[in-house]
Structure formats: structure tokens, C-alpha cells
Design a protein around this nucleic acid. Structure first.
Lengths: 160, 160
DNA sequence: TGATATCGTTGGTATCGCCAACATTGGTCA
DNA sequence: TGACCAATGTTGGCGATACCAACGATATCA
């Protein structure tokens, strides 16, 4: 073992001083852990987002689901297809507006959501378990602040 | 305007209470801003990472660049091809170890790095400019802590 | 009625991260 | 020395994520 793997992996300081870089780097790590856990559970993050939205808001159209979860309409289609196939949601046309599909969470879908949430809790523990409680809270607060700021295109439009 | 775009985009509370979700969500926003800025500049994040590594560590082999920047060997190839074509780096075989290519930063590459860094600074300002200085520092500190933790596979291997 | 907008859907694009395989080269060990 | 293993660069591919463009069907508004 002439060369230790980790020892040669010193990152350029410039990258470690670039917050936006740190964010994406952390997200890469997070995604790796989340994907591994979710893949094992046969789910994706889109699944989790959609199920969570349905639980909280009840039957919702696909377009609305996309807006709430920041997922493109076209990606919602595949996600719903998948969830329908596994009987976690039901898709039916809205009689009041036949352009829309109303997506409904099933009982199995409700349980599915609980299970996925548990998986994510595990990942969260691996990822943030070593942080002080205050630090963890500060992190989520800061991230929410960033996401709610007008620099996020999602927020800029609403005028009233 | 019967329905305001932003108003219907209320995220499920469950997502806003899941730190790992917030991280990836923030990263998505960050990537969107970064990609837009970098695309306009004709660069990618791989370009930035590689140029930064070359500036800091001098001529480096492709494999070593990959390890330092957490980029796969195969992706380094395309990145270097691109940078060579634009004359930002030079690729030549290492006479001391003919398996390796030594990648060298050119003068133009140095300036290129400065330019990209400026672009990223702008994004950073849009993204984090509204945070208090202390909050921004706490964020980078926390993210570095997460990245340096053993939950990151990159850190686990090195034993000595 | 005609113009406009929304919805679901299909299909395509780009980045990113990763993996398998191969030939070349270097180092190690019997 | 020769056999074996490791590292490198390269090619090709895969899957997840995040988009965008366009279409037909439907709804709404002037």
C-alpha cells in the first residue's frame, strides 16, 4: 500500500471556500446515501415528494403536484404511472375539469409513505447525527431561508 | 390571473422538515443558478473543479485530478479533452511514468479560472447575499463538517 | 365564436455520477 | 527472468435528475 487513497484526495482549497460548491458537494453525498437507501426500498425521491404532498393536501391534480414539489409535469407522469402500478395512488379524471387527473392516496400508499419516511430518517441520522442539535437546527433554518428567498425563481412570480 | 403561481406552490410540510430533502432542494436551486451562469460562460462544474485543482497543485495526472475533485476517471477524460481543445490546459505523457498524462494549466487557463470564479461569486451573492455574515459562515462550517465526516465514503478508507 | 390557457402526455436533451472492460505500462515477487 | 498484480487512460454504457418543446384535448374568456 504505497499510497493511501484518502491521503491523495485533498480537495483544492478554492472549492472548499466556495459555498455554492459545498452545497452541491453535500447534496451529492446526501443523494448518494438517499439513493442507496431508496433504491433498496424501490423508491425515488419523486415518489416521496408526491406521496407527502398527497398526504397533506388530499387528492390533487398532476400539474398541482408538480408545482408543489418542484417537479416538472412530464416527470410527474412517470412518477404517477409508477405509483399507480404499485397501487399506492389512484388516477382518475376530474369530472369537474376533464383536463385534470385527480390523484388519490391509497391506504397502501399511506403506509408506503411512512416506510419511506423511516428510511430517510435513517439516512438523516447517518448524515447529521454527529452534529450538535443547535447546529442541525441552524442548518435547516438557513436552508429554508435560502429556498424561500426571491433568488429562487419559484418565489419570484407571486405578486399578490 | 385567477391563480397566482407562487401561491399554489406551497410545499408539503413533511418535505420542509426533512433536512436531507432541504439539502437536495437547495442544491437543485444552486445547480440551476450555477448551470445557467456556467452555461452562459460555456463551462461546467467539472471545468471549474479541474482548473482549481491544477492551479493549486500544479501539473497533475488525470487519475489524481479525479481523486482530488471526486470525479470519475472516465469523466475526467472528457473534461480534459474539452479544456485541451480550448487551450486552457495541456496534456502530455509523463516521461517518468508513461501510464500517466501530466495536465498543465496554461496562462489562458489561469485567466479562465479567474473568470469562472467570478461567475460563481455572482451566483453566491444571489443565493446567499441576503444571509447574515455569521449565518453564511455557520453554513459553510456545517457543510464542511458533514463532508469531512466518516458518513462520507470518501473519508472512510484511509487508515494511516 | 375565436383567442388563450391549462392539462396530461410523449419524446428529447444535458449534466452528473458511476461502472465495466480493455490495452498499456509499472511494480512486485517467486 | 518471467508471472502476476496494480494503476492509468480510454471507450462505452446506464440511471437519476432536471429541464424543454410540442401535441391534442379541454376549459375559459373576450
Amino acid at each position: 500500500m504505497e499510497e493511501i487513497e484518502g491521503a491523495s484526495a485533498l480537495q483544492p482549497a478554492r472549492l472548499r471556500q466556495t459555498p455554492s460548491w459545498l452545497i452541491t458537494q453535500t447534496a451529492t453525498l446526501t443523494n448518494r446515501l438517499i439513493s442507496a437507501a431508496l433504491t433498496e426500498a424501490g423508491a425515488t425521491r419523486y415518489h416521496y415528494a408526491v406521496l407527502a404532498a398527497l398526504e397533506e393536501f388530499g387528492p390533487t391534480s398532476q400539474a398541482e403536484l408538480g408545482r408543489r414539489c418542484h417537479i416538472d409535469r412530464s416527470d410527474i407522469v412517470a412518477t404517477i404511472n409508477n405509483l399507480v402500478h404499485e397501487r399506492y395512488v389512484e388516477r382518475r379524471q376530474d369530472p369537474a375539469d376533464r383536463r385534470q387527473n385527480l390523484i388519490t392516496l391509497t391506504e397502501a400508499g399511506q403506509q408506503r409513505l411512512q416506510h419511506i419516511a423511516g428510511v430517510l430518517d435513517g439516512v438523516q441520522h447517518d448524515l447529521l447525527g454527529h452534529l450538535a442539535e443547535r447546529e442541525r437546527e441552524a442548518l435547516t433554518t438557513t436552508l429554508r431561508t435560502i429556498l424561500d428567498h426571491p433568488s429562487n425563481p419559484e418565489n419570484g412570480e407571486a405578486s399578490a
